[in-house]
Amino acid sequence: MSEVNNAYLLKELQDQFAAFITQVDEPYGLLTIELDKEQILPVLSFLVKHPELQMQFLTDVCGMHFPDNKGKELATVYHVHSFTKNIRLRIKCYMSLDAPQIDSVTSLFGSANWQERETFDFFGIEFIGHPNLKRILNVDEMEYFPMRKEYPLEDQTRTDKDDTYFGR
């Protein structure tokens, strides 16, 4: 048995999915791969079922928005964790603003349910196969995706705020 570390994890992934991994990085010791978004389910189920790694804990799912990154404006970021080997992996899947769709991983992890809903709520990323994809934190009537960079932070309906006091 070889030691389970980032190099081993990467080798295991490269053996199976080399064609779909576009970039590999290791910021602050956490292996990060960029993955073709079509492959998210196969990769995650491979990691879950892998006898050595057993990456069965989905720590986190979140979205990101890069307005200047043409064709790859939106991203979902997955953090998976193996409790048995104490190793983490970060997977990034980029997608374009025109087709913000990615497979839902709720079939593998129940915890992804709300996290994907939150990502949809904030970024408008649609998770295909999600059982109940609707807004979670914001009001249902909301028409935009507030965490996208073009939308402002502040409440636009405010009337009591004098801009001159804020140097604008």
Partner: peptide
Amino acid sequence: SGGIFDTYSVLQ
């Protein structure tokens, strides 16, 4: 007054 949360989701 909405406090530190001058955001789109908080009632001011």
